[in-house]
């Protein structure tokens, strides 16, 4: 419109209001609230050791949240991750039990299977752009779990080497090993998203894939890397999950994909892509994790947890939209 130039804002000045009105701070508040809640209902909770070790119960799923942030940032989705966890864990079990490979080799195979599953998704999504990623991963979700069923039927496997238990049950000092690994992974993924070329390009694709193409960004390559990475991290999750369960079954990690997506979206990443931050998703992991743990402490059934998480997800995404009804007209004006 005519007097547009006046609308241009100058160099971003630091504003406390803007800084504290970010989604991530709301999440921090929610996180604190959950902790106060936990502490109020159970005197045992406030014990630092308890808090730390409670993370062992939910962090395996969180490994998938990290790459899922990238997938959703692209404006796409991967619902095959739960099945990838099952398949890579089952293959690992079979290699260890039946072929008697050394444990370290079985672990590597698990990671490789995960990465391969992701690579396959990525190749189909990149090669056949006409098919929505949701559909591709819907079919591979059925397929991967199906392959796991073919391999292991309704049995369970994985009588793993003793040291393998350390992954999910071990401590470094007083800190659970899994927490350390997750922290390292979270930092790496966060830096990758926010501080590198690669991350910037992911944001670009999520905001406007066409303009990214015309800017010379190699979209196919980036997608391939991200889906492969997602598969690989599903393999990592498979390691920790089978270590925690002490066995592998074809029906393990059902629903992991939707949990991961829920945490990413709760963390403020826009499902349409291009907006959000890694830290939000990481805080969301701990909010949901501690919430589950706290409700578990007072013997609240896991069913209530389901309800709470479901409502939390729907309401949190609805929240910013409730007051927005007046803001729409401006948007149409821009067009």
């Amino acid at each position: 419109m005519p007097k547009r130039k006046e609308l241009i804002t100058g160099r971003k000045s630091f504003s406390f209001k803007r800084f504290f009105l970010q989604w991530e701070w709301l999440l921090v508040l929610a996180f604190i609230a959950v902790n106060i809640f936990d502490a109020a209902i159970s005197p045992y909770f406030l014990d630092m050791n308890n808090i730390l070790s409670s993370t062992m119960n939910f962090l395996d799923n969180a490994f998938i949240v990290l790459p899922m942030v990238f997938v959703i940032m692209l404006g796409e989705i991967d619902i095959s991750v739960g099945s990838t966890v099952a398949l890579s864990a089952v293959v690992m079990g079979v290699f260890y039990d039946k072929f008697h490979t050394p444990m370290w080799l079985a672990v590597l195979i698990c990671l490789a299977v995960g990465a391969l599953c992701g690579l396959f998704n990525g190749m189909i999504i990149v090669k056949f752009k006409e098919i929505a990623p949701m559909i591709v991963t819907l079919s591979t979700m059925t397929m991967y779990r199906g392959i796991a069923q073919i391999i292991i039927r309704d049995q369970s496997g994985g009588n793993f080497a003793p040291w393998f238990k350390f992954l999910s049950w071990g401590y470094l000092g007083s800190i659970p090993f899994i927490l350390v690994v997750f922290a390292v992974a979270a930092v790496i993924f966060g830096l990758l998203l926010h501080k590198t070329n690669f991350g910037r390009r992911v944001y670009a694709i999520g905001n406007n894939e066409i303009a990214s193409l015309y800017s010379g960004i190699q979209i196919g390559r980036i997608k391939l890397i991200i889906y492969t990475l997602t598969g690989f991290m599903s393999g990592v999750a498979a390691l920790f999950l089978s270590s925690r369960m002490g066995s592998t079954r074809s029906d393990m990690a059902t629903g992991y994909e939707l949990n991961a997506i829920a945490m990413v979206v709760l963390g403020g990443v826009n499902i349409m892509g291009g907006r959000g931050r890694m830290i939000g998703a990481i805080i969301a992991v701990f909010i949901i994790g501690f919430l589950k743990y706290g409700l578990g402490l007072i013997n609240m059934s896991s069913q209530v947890v389901l309800i709470v998480i479901g409502l939390l997800l729907a309401v949190s995404v609805a929240l910013p939209n409730i007051k927005k009804s007046g803001g729409k007209q401006r948007k149409t004006e821009e067009a």
């Binding site: 989705i77 939707l258 997506i261 829920a262 979206v265 499902i271 349409m272 059934s301 069913q303 209530v304 947890v305 389901l306 309800i307 709470v308 998480i309 479901g310 409502l311 939390l312 997800l313 729907a314 309401v315 995404v317 609805a318 939209n321 409730i322 927005k324």
Partner: peptide
């Protein structure tokens, strides 16, 4: 209500209530 009134993306709203209704069933 969530999809129309609060413009929540359908995949997210229904993902949320997938959990909630399932929990309600157990309850």
């Amino acid at each position: 209500v969530f999809v129309v009134r609060f413009s929540v993306a359908p995949i997210i709203a229904t993902l949320g209530f997938m959990n909630a209704y399932r929990g309600l069933t157990y309850l």
